[in-house]
Simulated assay, not measured.
Amino acid sequence: MIKAIALDDEPLALEILQSLCAEVEYIDLQKTFTKSDEAFKYLKKYPVDLLFLDINMPSISGLDFYKKLPHKTMVIFTTAYSEFAVEGFTLSATDYLLKPISFSRFQQAAEKALQHWKTQNQNLEQQYLFIRADYSLIKILFSDILYIEGLDDYLKIHIQNQKTVVARMTLKVLLQKLPSTEFIRVHRSFIIPISKIEKIRNKMIHIHEAEIPISTSYEAAFFEILNQK
């Protein structure tokens, strides 16, 4: 469910937004505001996913209000003036709705917000994984992994500033759990995170104090990915 609030100096415009949001099952419009200072205080204390924001307000423009926000929030600008559209999109707005807002146009903007929200949450979910080892489920951040070493049906996950985790699992199975844009297999016994490579010399990858060989069968794919970075 997308958590949202709306800010508009016109109460009628807020009523219309409330009725539009009520027709979309995945948007939870939690509060509405006619005063920008009250909305700003609320957002500092209760961050939301989406902000419906009028541009032409007496105390502060919606564009300036959005620039002041302390954290990243999706925004759908609403206004009766089309000349603000270009500047709205330069602020990476999710969409721009021209008043009066039809339901079909609102639904289109809501769908954009939903897709963006799903992408954001998917990325958050992909920051770690759980590995069963030592009779426990151990949470390992992708960003902490130095490299992974395979030993038959076991593997060692070498972790920055932490004890190495030994788990009963194959490299093939683990590779499917890792983000393909960040991790690559370079040898039948090694998976590495591309971001941790310090240097490559004589077909040896240097990560921290380890030297990891690049095997002939993985060499072409490895260097092709490096050239794309």
Rank of each mutant, 00 (worst) to 15 (best):
P100V: 14
Y96L: 07
E149S: 12
A133R: 00
Y128N: 05
I145W: 11
Q115T: 04
T78Y: 06
V75T: 05
Q115E: 14
E125M: 08
L129I: 05
D144N: 15
S92I: 03
Q122Y: 13
S104D: 06
I76Y: 00
S82V: 07
I138P: 01
R105G: 11
D134V: 05
K139T: 12
Q107L: 10
L137W: 13
I148P: 00
S82M: 12
I101K: 14
F103A: 06
S102Y: 10
Y81E: 04
V86W: 08
A110F: 01
L91G: 12
T78L: 03
L129N: 08
V75C: 01
H71C: 10
A93I: 04
Q120N: 13
K67T: 13
L141D: 00
I148A: 02
F142A: 03
E83A: 15
Q107H: 10
N123F: 14
Q108K: 10
L91E: 15
S82F: 07
L124I: 03
Q115A: 05
K118M: 09
T79E: 05
S102L: 15
K139D: 15
S82P: 06
R132H: 03
L124T: 02
I148E: 01
A80I: 13
N123K: 15
Y135R: 04
L141I: 06
K72F: 12
E149K: 09
A109T: 01
A80M: 08
Q107T: 05
S92F: 13
L137Y: 11
K67Y: 04
H71L: 13
S143N: 14
E111W: 02
A110K: 01
S136D: 11
F84Q: 11
F142D: 00
F84Y: 15
A113Q: 04
S136G: 08
S82H: 09
K139L: 12
P100T: 11
F130N: 12
L69P: 14
A93V: 05
L137C: 10
H71M: 07
Q115L: 06
Y96R: 01
A109V: 02
R105W: 14
I145N: 04
Y128I: 02
G88N: 03
A109P: 01
P100F: 14
L69F: 10
Y147C: 07
E111T: 06
L141V: 02
E87Q: 14
I101L: 10
D144E: 14
F130L: 07
T94V: 05
D144S: 14
A85P: 02
Q126G: 12
V86T: 08
L137V: 11
A110D: 08
L97K: 00
Q107A: 10
E111H: 01
Q107G: 04
A113H: 06
I140R: 02
A80R: 09
I145M: 07
I138M: 07
E149C: 13
S102N: 10
K118I: 11
A133K: 00
A85R: 07
A109K: 01
E83R: 13
Y128K: 14
H71G: 07
D144M: 09
F77W: 11
E87N: 12
F130K: 04
K118S: 08
I101Q: 09
F142V: 02
F142C: 05
P70C: 02
L69Y: 11
N123L: 10
L97G: 00
V86Y: 11
